[in-house]
Computed example of a mutant assay.
Amino acid sequence: MKKREKSDRQKPSKQLGKDDVALTDNKMPKKEIKNRENITIQENSRTNTFIKKSRFFLAENKIFFETIAAFSLTLMAVIISWVQLGIAQKQIDLLELQTQIERQQASPQFVVIARQYWNDEKTFAADDKILIYNQGNIAYNIDVDTAVFFKLTYISQAEYKEVLVPINGYYTIHLRTGDATGLVMTLESDSNNLKRWQIQDELGELAKNNGVTINLEVQRYLKLTYRDTFDVEHTQYYFVPLIYGGDLLETAEGEEVFSKKFGIGTEAKYYDLYEVTAQELFNLFP
């Protein structure tokens, strides 16, 4: 047994082949080195082929890409121009707003007031006047027009009606002070408020005798035209109640009111303050 064990230990170890991967001297096998070199060559070849194909593709489609580039540049130029246009428009709007503010500061500021004045005996408010003040900048070529209506309200047990009656001659005298600021004009007429109360009293008696009620209210409107320091013409419309100052109306509303100054429709009719009678007004309610 001992001889056999000794014989086994003396057998030579197996010799490593040249194609084995692991070597005792830690060197890479030549076959693997060659394989890697082949792989590198193939990769370089594919890369070169791709580059050649890419160059060929770009050369073949040169016009297409140049068109895209030109379109992109044009689009960018359009966008930039649009942005610049928006900025310019905002600057224009700002300039217009600034101009409007300057004009507003340099514009006249009118105050319109209706007042009633007592007669010499201090027994009755005989006169109804409109006073026009300018509390702003200088105004030129001031001109006025008035539209006055009797608003009649008819009340009975069966019905309720309102009629707007145009009245001419309520303010026949326009007194200019000659000043561009302060009190610039007074509108009046001879005992117009006294005449109005006489008509109202007579109309009330007629209504009472017929078992109805008729109320009379005076509505005053003013159209004011002037030029400012920029020589721009302006037209303003006012509703002028008693006690309180005149209310500035929208242009469309003012134009509509003055379109009714001489009546409405084909049978348009207005009445003169000093000629109309209470009976005529009562007959407006059949």
Rank of each mutant, 00 (worst) to 15 (best):
M1A: 14
M1V: 11
R4A: 14
K6T: 14
D8T: 12
P12S: 13
D20R: 12
D20H: 09
V21Y: 11
K27R: 15
P29C: 13
N38S: 11
N38E: 13
T40A: 11
I51L: 12
A59R: 15
F64M: 14
F65K: 04
I68N: 03
A69H: 09
A70Q: 12
S72H: 10
I79P: 00
W82G: 08
V83R: 10
I87H: 02
Q91Y: 05
I92W: 04
L94V: 14
Q98A: 15
T99H: 11
P108K: 06
F110K: 02
A114R: 15
Y117S: 14
D128W: 05
L131G: 01
N141E: 08
D143Q: 12
L152M: 09
T153S: 13
K161D: 05
V163D: 05
V163C: 06
L164W: 08
Y170M: 08
I173S: 05
A180N: 12
T186S: 10
E188H: 04
S189I: 07
N192V: 04
N193I: 02
K195F: 05
Q198E: 14
D201L: 10
E202V: 07
E202M: 09
G204N: 11
E205L: 15
L206I: 13
A207I: 05
G211S: 02
V212R: 00
V218P: 01
R220F: 01
L222Y: 00
L224N: 00
R227T: 06
E233R: 08
E233I: 05
Q236L: 10
F239S: 08
V240H: 00
P241M: 06
L248F: 01
E253R: 08
E256W: 04
S259I: 07
S259V: 07
G263P: 02
G263I: 04
G263A: 04
A268P: 01
Y271D: 07
L281P: 01
F282W: 06
N283V: 06
